[in-house]
């Protein structure tokens, strides 16, 4: 029983990271109806930015904040420069743009920072404050995730721009008719998604170590979380992310032939399972193709 509890708790910690990635993916999906395959690579690059800032002597939380700002601006610029010119282009062109972004971020990171793995600091103390059950970093990750989700919730529900962003994703035409610059709302969505991804990257890096391929597996779990919760529901994505973290841990521990090696398969099984059984996910509305 104790083992179950322990696995659930540490599942929630990794789940928080998946939830953040899932949320980033869903935010962009809502605005443009495509998955941003480069989301993970953008997050990885943000983490290198944080690492560089810490290397030059910046205190952790200052580097953290500055990384969020840089990632936000970077996300907005990517939308404006790369995606905006393509927004009436066929789907395939957009997918190619995502793949290009993926490759560019991955290889530029490898080129600048090399492929050798780097330790990335945790802002939380190493002593196990919360007992042997769960590390302080894991508790910290859950805390950071919840704070971030709280801020986003308040932003989207109670601020003028947050409301306008939701409106623009739901009904672009009516949004223009009330004076909302819909294109800029999409760009803001990219900025936010990029900053959320940066948080996920900085939280996972102390666990998996920093290297250019660090986010590939995480993104897969993020997708699984987004699909499980429903790609049309931000709340669903968050719940889905946490669930995937817990499921992954329990399956890895208690299903003997899976163990840690086959864990990534869990994500794939969830993705395929959701797509075949309930494509709209737990919280999503059925996706109806626009004609």
């Amino acid at each position: 029983m104790e083992l179950v509890l322990q696995q659930v708790l540490s599942g929630l910690a990794t789940g928080g990271i998946y939830a953040s990635v899932a949320l980033a993916v869903v935010m962009i999906y809502q605005a443009i109806e495509h998955f941003n395959f480069a989301q993970g690579e953008m997050a990885m690059f943000s983490t290198y930015v944080a690492w560089s800032l810490i290397q030059i002597g910046m205190p952790y939380w200052v580097a953290f904040g500055l990384t969020l700002v840089i990632s936000f601006i970077g996300g907005v610029l990517i939308e404006r420069i790369v995606l905006r010119p393509l927004h009436r282009a066929p789907i395939l062109s957009q997918i190619i743009a995502f793949i290009a972004l993926f490759v560019i971020f991955n290889s530029v990171a490898g080129w600048i920072f090399t492929y050798t793995i780097k330790p990335f600091p945790s802002p939380f103390p190493e002593e196990p404050i919360f007992g042997t059950f769960i590390s302080t970093h894991q508790v910290g990750v859950i805390g950071v995730t919840l704070v971030m989700l709280g801020i986003l919730f308040v932003f989207f529900n109670f601020s003028r721009i947050g409301l306008a962003m939701r409106a623009a994703a739901q009904n672009p035409e009516s949004s223009r008719l009330v004076g909302i610059p819909v294109g800029w709302m999409t760009a803001l969505g990219w900025g936010l998604a990029s900053a959320i991804g940066a948080v996920a990257g900085m939280m996972v890096a102390p666990i998996v170590f920093l290297e250019p391929n660090m986010m590939v597996g995480i993104l897969l779990y993020g997708f699984a979380g987004a699909l499980l919760g429903g790609v049309t529901s931000p709340t669903g994505a968050v719940v889905g992310g946490f669930l995937v973290g817990v499921i992954e841990n329990l399956v890895g521990t208690f299903v003997p032939f899976i163990g840690t090696e086959l864990k990534l398969t869990v994500a794939l099984v969830i993705i395929v399972g959701v797509l075949t059984i309930k494509p709209s996910g737990l919280f999503g509305r059925p996706v109806v193709t626009r004609v």
């Binding site: 003028r160 409301l163 306008a164 939701r166 409106a167 739901q170 009904n171 035409e173 009516s174 949004s175 008719l177 009330v178 004076g179 909302i180």
Partner: peptide, 26 residues
Amino acid sequence: IAHVPEGRGTFAKMTVDENLRLGSFT
């Protein structure tokens, strides 16, 4: 210039209150 479009164009998943708030966006 306020346009009340064909089919009404309300934000169906938002509340009445939020719809009006969006109307005052500018």
